[in-house]
Amino acid sequence: MYEVEYKQAKTVADAAALLAKTGGKPLAGGQSLIAAMKLRLAQPGTLVDLSGIADLHGIRREGDALVIGAMTRHAGIASSTEVKRAIPALAALAEGIGDRQVRNMGTIGGALANNDPAADWPAAVLALNATVVTGKRRLAAGDFFKGMYETALAADEIITAVSFPSPKKAAYVKFPNPASRFALVGVFVAQLADGSVRVAVTGAAPAVFRATGIEAALAKSFTADAAKAVKVDASGLNTDLHATAAYRAHLVSVMASRAVAACG
């Protein structure tokens, strides 16, 4: 790991000021960032640790929405009775991230800001039409994710929380890579409170995206068979040593159908 300076932020404003001044990177749980720094794939001059900012921790209800603080750890979300009651699909998704040690450190805010092409949380945020709250503004999910490891966040902008509106039904199903356990393809299906259907896919392309063909099919008939019958276009999907674009396209329909079935 290259040399780095370290600062502890006390408040969100303090963190933003430190980031603006140093040009550094925010440190949440560090489960992706520290690994990348060890491999010298990332080389921030300064780390601004967000763990000491009390406002970023915790889970609460705000009207119909479930609001999860950005520094809440995956394990805390997985075991939260509040999350299990409001949107059980989120607790199940959190329980499936990485392994237990990673879930004990990694945070929802860190995962969203990193926007790994195979991360689980972006699928939930996009499918549930959640709002990403930062120190400066509120971003609709559709405006937040920009591309591979890219988001709408400015260099000194920090996610403070994610606000999930309660859906009628929701489920997430992924096909994990047998070795890394990252999603080869993961599909989050949600029927929102207004009856609209949103389907978000992770792992298949350079960044999370909505499978609009499957959404249209499910809007007509919310059944596993309807999802499975949709042929997903493979153009633009990833091909690598684990799977071809055509195989991933096939998996999108299959995972979507399993997610619909899991919605009950």
Binding site: Y6, Q8, L27, G30, Q31, I34, A35, K38, L47, D49, S51, A75, R100, Q101, V102, N104, M105
Partner: peptide, 17 residues
């Protein structure tokens, strides 16, 4: 770390402050 299992090769010592 505070009762939770973590991987000490992927955490900085300063994070255990």
């Amino acid at each position: 770390l505070n009762g939770r299992a973590i991987k000490a090769c992927n955490v900085l010592a300063v994070q255990a402050q």
